[in-house]
Amino acid sequence: MSITKYDVEHIANLARIRIDTADIEQYTLDLARILELFQQMDSMDVKDKEPLAHPQDIELRLRNDEVTEPEMRQKLQSVAPSIHQGLYSVPQIIE
């Protein structure tokens, strides 16, 4: 499995990361080496192994349906880069 510049651009777009054209080659090489590392998994026999998503075999704990959090808009928005009339501001979006 090899990785192309096109793949790198596509992944960068999915991850919303801008990569300078000059750096794409280096990223491609780095990722290719990391994928080589991944290929070490190929030799492992994992047939019938249930994927392990959580290290502890536990069930989801369920919380009672109660409002426990006080109103805290001011506190939360004190760290926001741009607020307009209580709303988080983002560039105009046309749908």
């Binding site: 499995m1 991944f38 998994m41 492992m44 994992v46 192994k49 249930e50 994927p51 392990l52 998503a53």
Partner: peptide, 16 residues
């Protein structure tokens, strides 16, 4: 499947 699922299966193997 080739990467994430496989890695989780190896994770099970290691845990076992």
């Amino acid at each position: 499947d080739a990467y994430y699922r496989k890695a989780q299966q190896i994770r099970r193997l290691i845990s076992d």
